[in-house]
Design a protein around this nucleic acid. Structure first.
Lengths: 205, 205
DNA sequence: AATTGAAGTTGTCATTGACAACATTTGACC
DNA sequence: GGTCAAATGTTGTCAATGACAACTTCAATT
């Protein structure tokens, strides 16, 4: 038994993400995690002061992945600011389905209620990415009459709520074509009808 | 020491709601609940098979309160279907702030993932209330071109996401005038542009 | 009055998170 | 190369918790 595992912190985070995705965040136990990695029950405490700190670390990692995922979707959508913003909205929702562990962690009361500096910083980075894209979209005609703050809150609320519904067995109608549903909802945010004639023409072209 | 408490089930639910509102849902413990009510540690098991069942019962009660709260707001808004729907949206968001315990319970993974028949039935009642109001709003001109299912998903997602953000210390900007913020967001769902003559003309053209 | 089932009690167990005290490894410094 | 301090892992222990079993009391029906 190697005394030094060498990479325990990262492996704990990875294994935790796996367990949460497979069995839900309620099933996560530090001791079980330690057992899974063949390490003593107190080993995790060397890397995370308590369980909440592990969850916060996971949320921080998740936020950065979130940012990468959303930015990649924007870049894949091309240069048009409205198309980019719509693509980011779709990616936002999709993220919760692709990485359920991060989604669960990011919406866990223990995490959001007691964020540490790392998580707050990551969260701020995330906020900036969305705001910048929203500003560009507004300049291109999206909800041009609205305060940017309200427009951002509105769109984030919608995609976040959609993600919540789709991750909620009670509400989700388990639509066969989830992706099409996502597109339709995001279309209602970036509503072509609220755009000026120029954009309308561009879209119907 | 009265052997028969007489009203334990209801008192457990009330106390649980109080504790969740005060200290968060993670702090809820069956044994502490029993202590608070001056009852033995196993007494709750006579009324709830396990902790999750108590949470589900709380969610069921909460759903019914939710329905009452939202319907009352609609009735206070008068007869116009669009005004009623907007009022329901605002009430939807406000509910999460007024009854945090129910909100937490209704979004708890343990509850949504393992709903029992009672909760499913309550959830279905809730769905019907929203759908009926949405249908009426559509008939009155709200997103008239959209499939009702999509229009409902869109509006529920937005109010639900707004509630999530406002209950999330990481995201909420702790706006001084929450109520005004709620109104502005709901206005973006029930877009005034879809109401005024100019846009109506554009749409029907 | 007897009985029966609902409701509450005591006792116990395994699991868990947290903590303390100890052991080993690593790497920096001489 | 040797020494030492810090990082990392280990064993041992504790209190709290949820769950369960076995026993007790109460109330309602007959």
């Amino acid at each position: 038994m190697t005394y030094h595992h060498g990479n325990l912190r990262k492996e704990l985070l990875d294994r935790a993400a796996y367990v949460i995705a497979e069995q839900g965040i309620e099933a996560l136990s530090l001791r079980a995690l330690a057992r899974d990695l063949g390490v003593s029950h107190a080993a995790p405490s060397r890397h995370f002061a308590d369980k909440a700190e592990l969850l916060r670390a996971l949320a921080t990692v998740g936020t950065d992945r979130f940012i990468s995922y959303v930015l990649a979707a924007a870049d894949a959508a091309g240069d048009d600011p409205l198309e980019r913003y719509a693509a980011m909205g779709r990616a936002f929702i999709r993220f919760s389905l692709v990485f359920p562990a991060y989604y669960r962690t990011l919406t866990h009361p223990d995490v959001t209620a007691h964020a540490d500096e790392d998580l707050k910083a990551a969260s701020e980075r995330h906020r900036l990415v969305i705001h910048d894209a929203a500003r560009a979209a507004q300049a291109a005609g999206w909800l041009p009459d609205e305060k940017t703050e309200d427009a951002v809150l509105f769109s984030i609320a919608t995609v976040r709520g959609t993600a919540a519904i789709m991750n909620d067995p009670l509400s989700s109608k388990t639509e066969d074509d989830t992706e099409a549903q996502i597109r339709r909802i995001v279309r209602l945010i970036i509503d072509p009808d609220t755009l000026n004639a120029k954009n309308k023409a561009t879209r119907s072209a």
